[in-house]
C-alpha cells in the first residue's frame, strides 16, 4: 500500500492505495464520492469521466497513484459555490438531457471540458466530442441540445418540450 495525496473538488485528500487501485475506485470507495460511475470495464462508456488538472479523463483507466499532487474535479464539485446548479448542469435539467442519470456525471464532465476548450461548438463538434460517452436513454438529442444551450446558442428550432419551472 502506498499513500497518495491529491486535491479533490478543492479539498486536500490522501489515502492508502494499492498500485492497481484506479482513480475511480479511490474516489468511490476511498472518498465516498459515488457520483463518478462505472459503466464498463473497457474504458468506452465514459460514465467515470472526471477532470484531472483541467483535462477530462476516464477515471476507470487512471491509477490513483498517477494523480499524486493533481487537482481532481468530480461531478460533486460542479455546482456553483452557493450550491445552485452551474450553467451546464442547469442546461441538462432545462432541456431534459438526462433520464436514468447514470451516464450523466460523465456527460456533464465531458461537456464542461469541451466548452472550456471550445465555447461555441457546432452540433457536429459536440457529437464528435461525445464519442467516448455512451447514453442508452436519451438518444443524445437533448444532451446535444443542452450543450448547445449551455454555450449560449439558440436551440428553439430543435423541437418543443423544453421544461418549465416547477412550482
Amino acid at each position: 500500500m502506498t499513500r497518495v495525496t491529491m486535491t479533490v473538488n478543492g479539498k486536500a485528500v490522501s489515502g492508502e492505495v494499492e498500485g492497481r487501485t484506479l482513480l475511480s475506485q479511490f474516489l468511490r470507495e476511498g472518498l465516498g464520492l459515488t457520483g463518478t460511475h462505472i459503466g464498463c470495464d473497457t474504458s468506452q462508456c465514459g460514465a467515470c469521466v472526471v477532470h484531472v488538472n483541467g483535462q477530462d479523463v476516464k477515471s476507470c483507466t487512471t491509477f490513483a497513484l498517477e494523480c499524486e499532487g493533481a487537482e481532481v474535479r468530480t461531478i460533486e464539485g460542479m455546482a456553483n459555490p452557493d450550491g445552485s446548479l452551474s450553467t451546464i448542469q442547469q442546461a441538462f435539467q432545462d432541456h431534459h438531457g438526462l433520464q436514468c442519470g447514470f451516464c450523466t456525471p460523465g456527460m456533464v464532465m465531458t461537456a464542461s471540458a469541451l466548452l472550456a476548450k471550445n465555447p461555441t461548438p457546432s452540433e457536429a463538434e459536440i457529437r464528435h466530442y461525445l464519442e467516448g460517452n455512451i447514453c442508452r436513454c436519451t438518444g443524445y438529442h437533448n444532451i446535444v441540445k443542452a450543450i448547445l444551450a449551455a454555450s449560449g446558442q439558440d436551440v428553439s428550432h430543435l423541437g418543443h418540450g423544453d421544461a418549465v419551472a416547477a412550482e
Binding site: 464520492l33 459515488t34 463518478t36 462505472i38 461531478i75 446548479l85 448542469q89 438526462l98 442519470g101 418540450g161
Partner: peptide, 22 residues
C-alpha cells in the same frame, strides 16, 4: 400537460443519486 422540470435531476446532476452500487 405541463413540461415540468424533473425534480430527480438535481440529485443526478450533482452526483447525489443513490444507485445500488453506491
Amino acid at each position: 400537460g405541463a413540461s415540468t422540470k424533473r425534480r430527480e435531476d438535481v440529485r443526478f446532476l450533482t452526483g447525489r443519486g443513490r444507485y445500488t452500487d453506491d
